[in-house]
Structure formats: structure tokens, C-alpha cells
């Protein structure tokens, strides 16, 4: 019962974050909302595991925690450089070569 209440709160927060992700004027607003959605998903996984007495969900939650962080940093780098695998300063790399 107590977990159901917490799940409802997290679900409502998730819905609000989705609203911001759809409405956000800048890409950074969307990214912030997506990060928040990821955190909500982790909390949902953990709470659902407790609600149904299946703590294996926590392992999936740990995976999501790590992916969430990597995803945010990767998208930020993509915004900045337009690519994920490229060098930061092509001219300098040319000079080094």
C-alpha cells in the first residue's frame, strides 16, 4: 500500500516531466526533463520491485542509473560538437599529425 502511494507520486512527476520535455523551449530544457524522466524510471523500477516483492528489479535499476548518466553526458557532447566520436579541435589534431 505504501509503495503504491509512492508509485503514484512518481508517476505524476513523470507525467509532468514529459510535459516539460515536449514543451521545453530549448534543447537543454528537454535534456533536463529527459534526465528527470530517467530518474523517475529508476525510482519506479525500485518501487515496483518492492510492491510486487521481486527485488530483482533493483538490479535493472542499477543499470538504468549508469545508463542515465552516460546518456546525458553523451547528448551534451553531441550538442556541443555535433558528433560523438570526433576530436574536439580538428585543426589541433591536424597539427599534431
Amino acid at each position: 500500500m505504501m509503495f503504491a502511494v509512492a508509485i503514484l507520486a512518481v508517476l505524476a512527476a513523470l507525467a509532468l516531466a514529459v510535459v516539460r520535455a515536449l514543451a521545453g523551449p530549448t534543447a537543454f530544457d528537454r535534456l533536463l526533463a529527459v534526465n528527470s524522466i530517467g530518474t523517475s524510471a529508476i525510482m519506479l523500477l525500485a518501487l515496483f520491485g518492492f510492491l510486487t516483492d521481486r527485488p530483482e528489479f533493483l538490479d535493472i535499476g542499477i543499470t538504468y542509473v549508469l545508463l542515465n548518466m552516460i546518456g546525458t553526458l553523451a547528448v551534451l557532447k553531441f550538442f556541443r560538437y555535433g558528433a560523438l566520436g570526433h576530436a574536439q579541435d580538428p585543426e589541433r589534431d591536424e597539427a599534431l599529425r
Partner: peptide
């Protein structure tokens, strides 16, 4: 859990 849920909602409302 209830306090955590409330704080979680506060953050989401502030986000909007």
C-alpha cells in the same frame, strides 16, 4: 515514502 513522494512532486511541479 510519503515525504519523498511529496518532494518528488514539488520538483516536478517546479520543472514546469
Amino acid at each position: 515514502l510519503v515525504l519523498g513522494g511529496i518532494f518528488y512532486l514539488i520538483g516536478a511541479v517546479g520543472l514546469n
